[in-house]
Design a protein around this nucleic acid. Sequence first.
DNA 1: CGGAATCCGGATAGATACTG
DNA 2: CAGTATCTATCCGGATTCCG
Lengths: 135, 135
Amino acid sequence: MTTSGAGAESIDHARIAAALAVRGEPACRVRDVLDRVGDKWSVTLVHELGGGARRFSELRRGVPGISPRMLSATLRGLERDGFVLRTVHPTVPPQVEYALTPLGHTLLDTAWSLMNWALEHADDIDDARREYDAK
Amino acid sequence: MTTSGAGAESIDHARIAAALAVRGEPACRVRDVLDRVGDKWSVTLVHELGGGARRFSELRRGVPGISPRMLSATLRGLERDGFVLRTVHPTVPPQVEYALTPLGHTLLDTAWSLMNWALEHADDIDDARREYDAK
DNA sequence: CGGAATCCGGATAGATACTG
DNA sequence: CAGTATCTATCCGGATTCCG
């Protein structure tokens, strides 16, 4: 058993099991976080904002393929959960800045560890797929 | 130990950015992993298998709400990526066991750190939502 | 027991056009 | 510039039924 660095020291196994068992419960944000990590743009945007505050159109350029609709909707969700702070500067033309909150930065950290795991094991996954598909 | 889940020590920022930018690329399993973590049953099943090998109907009972269709499909996906080993015992009636591979265990470790983060910050998220919704 | 096949509804997300 | 509105395609996942 690899008792690796973070996450292994004090996992509340029972609470995680309970959190996974149900959706939409009050104290069970585990499912919400997994859903968010899995949605199409949230992690990408959080990652982008990890480099510093960005404006709407900067994000639009920095995240190729995202539509204004999804950019707006995803940012609103991130803002609602307290991961992103939205600041409107009352200028003409209007200027809106998005930045990670401290909470958003901790999310980015754990997302990084997940993505880093994915990079480290990408070859293993590819190998397994080739072997599986060979049959 | 090769990987510590903390994620702060040697993140390949550039490769992660590249991996997030595109979907379905050869070496970019980052997106695949995020999608898998976000899908409805994969993490739950991996978590369940973390407790030891299980048979199909054991999983069906152990994971309330899952349909045989999604159980089968999710297990096949996990098997294809090398996270789960499927063993058929040629008995009557047939008996099939699913177990985590070593790779699957490392996935479970990183998933744990993510879920643990979610548990730790569930209150923060709830607070942020209440504040946001108040407006 | 351990699935596969089929059908179907709701959510997710893309494209496009328009506005303060 | 920073979004919203609408319309639509797609896909995920649930229910049901059947098979080896």
